[in-house]
């Protein structure tokens, strides 16, 4: 069984079988990560470049660790400390790197569609590590893996995505993936942070009421308020956001059932999540990080034979 695509540009391009294959392969890599030697030789003849045109800690470390656990050779590129700062174009940078015999490219870029552009121009396998406000496919895959582990499946699971939906590539990738796997999705947040036609375009339920949404869902995936992507004032203050859409322990305890709390990180403590919620036993935030390495190993492994 093989993936139907050569690249991982977005969840949009994957079918249900691809997603299942990645998740089941990730389960085997998770087992690898529990062994005394947490490494396999599968990619020892593969060279991977991590091209990060945008800041990242978790995703970059997670990819790098996944690559090392697969025995691949890796090079890291950060736009701020490279020739991109001197005005070199994306295509020129990548072609120069590829002439050093690189097989796979992991790329994060602030422009939506940047990895799709690269995939049309270079022969290496491209993995999107987040492009603008479009997609962040490996985050959605690791979220799905974590939900599946906790809820024993994805079919019929009710997932609420809460917060800044407008600027979130995580939300978009999650919606695509959860729908393909038969889960139900509601997005919740202030009207200014939810795209107007999202219900028609992506088929999700929309709610502006946090309490009602939490009563409905099994899993709440709480997004970060992305202050760096907002060049206009979309809510009056962080304090006001916390009062209306922040999740407190008191709110969680008032619900009829115990729900699972997720967050892709980095958390703004006291804004979208209170500290005692982020650190509570209902939160699987650190399991998400752990699962991220296994899921990225699965993606890299499954795409490594396509050249």
């Amino acid at each position: 069984m093989q993936l139907s695509t050569r690249h991982l540009l977005g969840i949009k391009d994957l079918n249900k079988e691809d997603i299942s294959l990645i998740l089941s392969t990730a389960a085997q890599f998770k087992e690898v990560l529990q062994r005394p030697v947490k490494k396999v030789p599968s990619l020892r003849d593969v060279t991977i470049v991590n091209l990060f045109y945008e800041n990242s800690t978790r995703t970059r470390f997670s990819f790098e660790l996944a690559e090392k656990r697969l025995s691949a050779d890796t090079i890291n590129f950060a736009a701020s400390s490279s020739s991109a700062a001197k005005g070199e174009t994306l295509l020129d940078t990548v072609q120069n790197i590829l002439s050093m015999k690189v097989d796979m490219v992991v790329m994060r870029h602030s422009a939506s569609g940047a990895p799709h552009f690269l995939a049309q121009h270079i022969p290496a396998a491209i993995i999107n590590a987040g492009d603008g406000i479009n997609e962040h496919p490996t985050q959605a895959l690791l979220d799905a893996f974590s939900i599946q582990e906790k809820m024993r499946g994805l079919e019929g699971v009710k997932v609420a995505i809460i917060g800044d939906i407008m600027h979130s590539r995580v939300a978009q990738s999650n919606i695509y993936l959860l729908h393909k796997m038969g889960a139900k999705v509601t997005v919740c947040g202030p009207p200014t942070l939810i795209p107007k036609y999202i219900q028609q375009a992506l088929g999700v339920q929309v709610s502006y009421n946090l309490q009602e949404t939490l009563e409905w869902c099994d899993v709440a995936n709480v997004l970060r308020i992305q202050l760096e992507r907002q060049n206009q004032v979309l809510f009056s203050s962080l304090r006001e956001y916390n009062i209306a859409y922040g999740i407190s322990k008191k709110l969680l305890d008032s619900l009829q059932k115990e729900i699972v709390i997720m967050h892709p990180g980095p958390i703004n403590r006291g804004v979208e999540l209170d500290s005692d919620v982020a650190d509570s036993k209902q939160s699987i935030i650190l399991q998400q990080v752990e699962n991220g390495v296994a899921v990225r190993m699965a993606v890299l492994y499954l795409l490594s034979g396509k050249n």
Binding site: S24, S42, D45, L302, S304
Partner: peptide, 20 residues
Amino acid sequence: LDITFYRDDIRKEILAPDTM
């Protein structure tokens, strides 16, 4: 024991792993 990740002909065909 599943040997999928350790095969010496891994690049010829990427196989889905079995349970370990």
